[in-house]
Design a protein around this nucleic acid. Structure first.
Length: 833
DNA sequence: AGCACGCCGACT
DNA sequence: GTCGGCGTGCTC
């Protein structure tokens, strides 16, 4: 008897283990590791993933319930992805179902739905009917209705529904449903009649049902739905399945496909001739591919050095070897321009996965991969889970981007998942960036010395020059304090204003970066000092001019623009700080006739708007592309010769040890947008802190220098990559409980560390150390009506802090649950806020 | 996480 | 007496 070990879709600590089920006869052969199944669980019916099959497991069979259904013709996950999920849940301390669920396309994240319908012979009095406000009339039409929908439509009838269900006058039924709208039919594609007839002889006489099916198919040699064929031959799908194993037929899920790129022509492109530098960069990657060794490389190339062509040719080689490739790109860089580059080189072999596709479209692309019709997957973070079976190469472009870390559970980092997945496949990893993350750089620089970062060995490949020897743009730093002294109170310095005017005359283009959206960043009353804050979060509200309201950028709350102070009714209420909307206005004022495209979260929510703006800019229907960091990444426009940064230090003062690194990276990236083609580029950076290293290093394009100094500082303070962090956040609607639960966690962890003889101090001896900071109120003390406290665990890489933390959480979990305190754990947090 | 079961106050 | 409040414990 085979037992299936199933992870049910209940994301909690208590249920984070496999539950055993029997496999009923009709599903024999369909249940595999990675199958998605519907199972009974207590009184409910749930979706689950099979993570193991055990022959006659050591359990009381009588206690086991059978699997109810297998939900896909092909298991959506492979044993390798299940293993990867197990690794993830250990690495980032999340329930296994959460990491497995993260690998499925949204269309397959079916939830179970409850339906209710009247029991046979159930009666209701006229009075009850009248009081139900139409509910009973709807129900008595006979069709089962969704319980969730009824509760939403008749909110007052909840109690009545419950009563009737208990009394048995209503019945409920639960089904696990897919979200995908496209209809899927599992279809049998038979081999040709001749092959089938020949094969009949070889099928053992005992397998009479199989023979019958084959004879049927020999006569009716057309594709037929699995269910119909089973009915036709009065047998079960298990029979058909074994025929598939004999190679006499193929079962495929057939759907109407939506190809989001169907209406577009891609002109074929051939490999370009590599520069000698590019060729040198490519060589070690190709060596690794040929040897099938799971090596990782940092491809450190300045902006415009032609990294993409290196990726393309590495992928080419990978495909020639009959293996598949994954390319990760930051979401906002995943533009038509980039997709086109891959499509034109590899054609229909490319599947594209990004968040702007509908669930259905995404599911189609995902199936192309699963069914082997695509060999290259290009996508954002979650494309790292592309269901390939033989991966040869994983490329992560702009590997330093923060978007590779998922900010909700599972809080994984795609870079690390890539390295682990590559290890399982014997695949090469290429991490490309002009400004590598300090963690990556350190791992590459000290690969021989033994790195603390946890990334393992990384080979270093440098690409220090732009193609065709185009110079890097000149960078000018403007001290805005000097401007103020000279009486210039405008938001554009004299040199930036002059440069803008010059480009307008020459009909060249300009990119302007300001990392704050909205119009004004805070609202204050000059009489009483009142500032407008979100009632749900401890965050000041941002004024948006178009809609004349104040908005919270954390929870989306908005309120009307105040005319007088809500606190003292003084009319002296003023808007402070500059956002992109205000810059747009100032540009129009200072340069009449200027054509500006503003690109930020507010103007790009609509589907396709992002690409539309970029196309408009590329076609030079605008002079200025003004925006938040989304204008800094990966864009390549030949006529951009000026890049202006309005407030370079805006992110520098955040209470986050990575703030200087982020600032340097952002400035370098945006500077790289200028002068990428024939026309030379110029960059003007405005700041109130012109001496700051994050800014001065951009001027000299001095990554090396910046990084060496930053790493030294990190080492002194025990921050990553030399020490590591785990952030634990406790939240509750009231603050009262948080300090005590947080305190219990901190002291519990300190005790455990002491027992194991782990030192508290980080010192030069290099001995294991672990330190617990907090609990303290989080930098954002309240978010969406919940107060937040946090602890930060700082430790050296040789301490298994994850294990310690999960043990302590196990101890205090009960108390936290009773008190209603939510705990979220972030291993290797990327944002300190 | 849900959902049932169980033991307590406020209604017909 | 019953309805429904939410604390507790279990789900193969």
């Amino acid at each position: 008897m085979t037992i299936a070990r199933v992870i049910v879709d209940v994301p909690s600590r208590d249920t984070d283990r496999a539950f055993d089920y029997t496999i009923p006869e009709r599903l024999q052969g369909w249940v595999e590791i990675g199958s998605r199944v519907a199972v009974p669980f207590g009184p409910r019916k749930l979706q689950g993933i099979v993570i193991g099959l055990a022959e006659d497991a050591d359990v009381e069979l009588a206690k086991l319930k059978p699997i109810e259904e297998v939900l896909d013709a092909l298991p959506p996950l492979s044993p390798e992805l299940v293993e990867l999920g197990e690794w993830m849940s250990r690495r980032w301390l999340c329930p296994l179902t959460v990491s497995l669920q993260a690998m499925l396309p949204a269309a397959l994240k079916g939830r179970s739905e409850k339906y209710v319908f009247p029991a046979a012979g159930a009666q209701w009095s006229d009075e009850e009917t009248a009081r139900s406000g139409g509910l009973l009339l709807a129900l008595r039409k006979g069709k089962p209705l969704k319980l969730a929908m009824l509760l939403q439509q008749y909110p007052e009838q909840g109690a009545a529904l419950k009563r009737w269900l208990r009394q048995g006058r209503l019945e409920e039924r639960q089904r696990v449903e897919d979200k995908s709208s496209g209809k899927t039919v599992y279809t049998v594609f038979p081999a040709d009649a001749e092959t089938l007839l020949k094969a009949v002889e070889e099928i053992p006489a005992r397998a009479s049902k199989q023979r019958e099916v084959v004879r049927y198919l020999a006569e009716n040699n057309d594709p037929i739905a699995v269910a119909r064929l089973a009915a036709e031959a009065s047998t079960t799908s298990a029979t058909i399945r074994s025929l598939e194993e004999r190679g006499l037929l193929e079962i495929r899920s057939v759907t109407e496909e939506r190809d989001p790129y169907a209406d577009r022509d891609f002109t074929a492109s051939n490999p370009m001739v590599l520069t000698p530098k590019q060729a040198t960069a490519l060589a070690p990657i190709v060596d690794a591919l040929n040897e099938r060794s799971s090596e990782a490389f940092l491809l450190h190339g300045v902006t415009g050095s032609g990294k993409t062509e290196v990726y393309l040719q590495a992928i080419q080689r990978c495909l020639e070897l009959g293996r598949e490739a994954i390319v990760l790109v930051p979401e906002i860089a995943l533009t038509a321009q980039l997709v086109e580059r891959f499509k034109s080189r590899f054609g229909a072999l490319v599947a594209v996965l990004h968040s702007r596709l509908s669930n259905g479209e995404r599911y189609d692309e995902w199936r192309k991969i699963r069914e082997g019709r695509a060999q290259v997957a290009v996508g954002a973070r979650s494309a790292i889970f592309a269901p390939f079976s033989s991966i040869g190469l994983i490329v992560i472009d702009e590997e330093h981007e923060t978007s590779y870390k998922q900010e909700e559970s599972p809080r994984y980092h795609a870079r690390e998942v890539a390295i682990e997945r590559a290890r399982l496949h014997g695949a090469a990893v290429v991490l490309g960036s002009a400004t590598p993350a300090l963690e990556t750089y350190e791992a590459a620089a000290h690969t021989r010395g033994g790195s603390q970062s946890g990334l393992g060995k990384i080979g270093y490949i440098g690409l220090p020059e732009r193609v065709a020897n185009r110079p890097l743009p000149g960078v000018q730093i403007v001290d805005m304090r000097e401007e103020l002294k000279l009486g210039n109170r405008a938001m554009f310095s004299r040199s930036l204003a002059a440069a803008i005017k010059d480009r307008l005359e020459k009909q060249e283009q300009i990119v302007l970066l300001l990392n704050r959206r909205g119009y004004a960043t805070f609202v204050m009353c000059r009489s009483c000092g009142y500032t407008a804050a979100c009632p749900h979060c401890e965050i000041s509200l941002t004024y948006h001019r178009g809609s004349s309201n104040l908005r919270c950028h954390y929870c989306g709350y908005s309120e009307a623009e105040p005319k007088t102070c809500p606190s003292c009714e003084s009319p002296h209420i003023r808007f402070f700080g500059t956002g992109t909307q205000k810059v747009e206005e100032a540009l129009a004022e200072a340069f009449p006739g200027i054509r500006v495209i503003r690109m930020d979260v507010d103007t790009t929510t609509e589907k396709g708007s992002h690409e539309r703006w970029l196309t408009e800019f590329r076609e030079r229907r605008a002079d200025v592309l003004l925006g938040t960091q989304m204008v800094a990444k990966g864009l390549d426009f030949p006529y951009v010769t000026l890049v202006g940064v309005l407030a370079a230090d805006s992110a520098l003062r955040l209470p986050d040890f990575r703030a200087p690194e982020r600032t340097f990276q952002l400035l370098t990236q945006v500077a790289g947008r200028a002068g990428r083609h024939e026309l030379p580029g110029e960059v003007i950076i405005q700041t109130y802190d012109p001496e700051h290293e994050s800014i001065t290093s951009v001027q000299g394009h001095d990554y090396q220098g910046f990084v060496e100094r930053a790493l030294l500082l990190r080492k002194q303070l025990g921050y990553p990559p030399y020490g590591r962090l785990i952030g634990v956040t406790f939240s509750h609607e009231s603050a009262a409980m948080l300090l005590s639960i947080g305190g219990q966690f901190a002291s519990g962890l300190r005790e455990r560390a002491m027992e194991l003889g782990i030192r508290k101090e980080f010192d030069s001896t290099g001995a294991s150390a672990l330190e617990v900071l907090g609990p303290v109120s989080s930098p954002i003390a309240r978010l969406k009506d919940r107060y937040r406290f946090q602890c930060m665990v700082k430790y050296r890489g040789d301490v298994d802090a994850s294990l310690l933390v999960s043990r302590v959480l196990g101890e205090i979990g009960e108390a936290a649950k009773r008190g209603g305190v939510q705990i979220s754990v972030d291993v290797d947090p990327q944002m300190m806020l």
